[in-house]
């Protein structure tokens, strides 16, 4: 196995708060690596630095051996990194299908194309419908995005992440705010992705994490205090003390 993503000694502070503290972590090829940690541990801040919307104070991020620490977000997307958002981040003014079609369009080189109406470009629309069907939104394709429920927005987030067909998926709490049934469906969806993509999954839902992850890292106060298989993490005293015990 070779590492797709290597995070080396990353640091990031906001004023007095050290949100990322000498963070080191690797995601292997095809691995589903889950990161758990209490609220405010710095999980989202880590993702933001991986996708480029925030710049670390020090440390390095390598994608397939290439240093991307300071690369612009859109360039990282071109390399094959995609993210989903903890707080749903969609283009609310557009239809459900438009959102996914835009994600597909992003993969086809530049979009300085002015002549053809985007909504008549069949392969984008067809593929968009397929993806939405895959996440269970087949009957919502033409709805306005604002009109969908929270659970449906979470599915859209996943469909958009899938549209990128990215080698590395950074998923920030895809189950945030979902009910039990919806969570189970999301776990099933994510299970279907295992092996096809390398995935860094942030998740609070312990059942989901233990069901899905190949390896788990525990993040506390911006620092990884343990990494291991689900069984190892369950048995780790420091982890139980710092985190699992609180649950």
């Amino acid at each position: 196995m070779s590492a797709v993503l290597e995070i080396q000694g990353l640091n990031k502070s906001f004023g007095g708060i050290k949100a990322t503290d000498n963070l080191t972590l690797t995601v292997e090829q095809g691995e589903l690596h889950a990161v758990i940690g209490p609220n405010g541990a710095g999980k989202t801040t880590m993702i933001s630095q991986l996708c480029g919307t925030q710049v670390p104070d020090s440390g390095r991020v390598l994608f397939k051996g290439r240093d991307i620490t300071r690369l612009a977000p859109h360039r990282r997307a071109h390399l094959g990194i995609t993210r989903s958002y903890q707080i749903t981040s969609l283009i609310m003014e557009m239809s459900v299908l438009d959102n996914v079609a835009l994600a597909l369009q992003a993969r086809e080189g530049h979009s300085f194309r002015f002549l053809r109406p985007a909504r008549t470009i069949t392969h984008l629309r067809e593929r968009g419908r397929d993806l939405l069907t895959r996440v269970g939104l087949a009957d919502k394709v033409d709805h306005a995005t604002v009109a969908l429920s929270h659970g449906e927005h979470r599915r859209m987030e996943l469909a958009i992440a899938l549209a990128a067909e990215a080698e590395l998926m950074l998923l920030d709490e895809p189950m945030a705010g979902l009910g039990t049934q919806e969570s189970l469906e999301m776990v099933a969806l994510l299970k279907g992705l295992k092996g096809k993509h390398s995935i860094l999954l942030i998740e609070h839902d312990m059942d989901a994490v233990f069901a899905l992850a190949d390896r788990i890292s525990v993040l506390v106060y911006g620092h990884i205090i343990a990494t291991g298989t689900p069984a190892e993490i369950r048995g780790n005293e420091a982890v139980q003390h710092a985190y699992l015990g609180e649950e």
Binding site: H74, A77, S89, I91, M94, R116
Partner: peptide, 26 residues
């Protein structure tokens, strides 16, 4: 024509959610 084109979709997307558009690769 511009608004309905692929360019126009990106333009409107960047109005609605610039961060998302960047993370898509635009």
């Amino acid at each position: 024509m511009i608004v309905n084109s692929r360019f126009g979709m990106v333009l409107q997307g960047a109005k609605g959610n610039p961060e998302r558009m960047a993370s898509l690769g635009f």
